[in-house]
C-alpha cells in the first residue's frame, strides 16, 4: 500500500453504470471514491468534504455539469479543484456551448465517452501531479494533447480550420 493519504475523487454522473465503471477503475488504481448522481448532490458532498479531483459529466438532470462548474469557480476554495470532464456530448449542440465555457475557465481536461480505464487513470494522475509509470506518463500526455487539440478545433473559425488543414497536409507530405 502506498504510504501517502489516499486521494479522494468525486465522480458525478447521472448514469449508475458509468459511476460503477469509473469507481471500479479508480479503486483499482488506489483512489478513494465518492459519488453523486447530479450537480445538487455533488455540491452537498463538496460542502461536506473537498475532494482532490472531480470527475464530471456535462448533461445531467437537476443541476448540469456546466452549472455546477460555474458555482465552483465562484468559490475561492472550490475553484482550485481540478476537474476532468467525461462526456458524450462533447461535440454536439447540447454539450458544445457548455464545454467551451468550461474549458475557458479553470484547470481541467475532457475525455469523450466511451473512455478507456487506463486513459482515465493516467489523465487523473497527471492532473494531480502524482508519480506515474513511463507508460502512464506517455498515455496522459497523449490524452492531454488530444483534449487540447479537440478544444482548439472546436473553438476555431473556418479560416483557422482551413489553415490547420493545410498545415497538417504539408507536414504529412514532408514527413512522407
Amino acid at each position: 500500500m502506498p504510504d501517502y493519504k489516499k486521494k479522494k475523487i468525486l465522480v458525478v454522473d447521472d448514469e449508475k453504470d458509468v459511476r460503477e465503471f469509473l469507481k471500479a477503475a479508480l479503486f483499482e488504481a488506489g483512489f478513494d471514491v465518492i459519488e453523486a448522481e447530479d450537480g445538487n448532490i455533488a455540491l452537498e458532498k463538496i460542502k461536506n468534504e473537498i475532494p482532490d479531483l472531480i470527475s464530471l459529466d456535462l448533461v445531467m438532470p437537476k443541476k448540469s455539469g456546466a452549472r455546477l462548474h460555474r458555482e465552483l469557480s465562484k468559490n475561492k476554495d472550490w475553484s482550485k479543484i481540478p476537474v476532468i470532464i467525461v462526456t458524450g456530448h462533447a461535440r454536439d449542440d447540447l454539450g458544445k456551448a457548455d464545454l467551451k465555457e468550461l474549458t475557458m475557465s479553470g484547470p481541467g481536461i475532457y475525455l469523450e465517452k466511451p473512455v478507456k480505464p487506463h486513459n482515465y487513470i493516467a489523465a487523473i494522475k497527471k492532473l494531480l501531479n502524482m508519480d506515474t509509470t513511463q507508460d502512464e506518463k506517455e498515455t496522459a500526455e497523449l490524452v492531454e494533447l488530444q483534449s487540447n487539440l479537440k478544444n482548439i478545433i472546436d473553438s476555431s473559425d473556418s479560416e483557422t480550420l482551413r489553415r490547420l488543414k493545410e498545415l497538417l497536409n504539408d507536414t504529412g507530405k514532408s514527413s512522407g
Binding site: 448514469e15 453504470d17 458509468v18 460503477e20 465503471f21 469509473l22 471500479a24 477503475a25 483499482e28 458524450g88 456530448h89 461535440r91 454536439d92 449542440d93 469523450e112 465517452k113 466511451p114 473512455v115 478507456k116 480505464p117
Partner: peptide, 24 residues
C-alpha cells in the same frame, strides 16, 4: 445522426464498463 452517435457512445461506455469489471 449526431444524436444517434451520442446514444451509441453512451451504450458503448456501459459495455466498456461491464467488460472492464468482468475482467477485473
Amino acid at each position: 445522426v449526431a444524436g444517434l452517435a451520442h446514444s451509441i457512445k453512451n451504450i458503448l461506455m456501459g459495455l466498456e464498463g461491464g467488460k472492464y469489471i468482468v475482467s477485473l
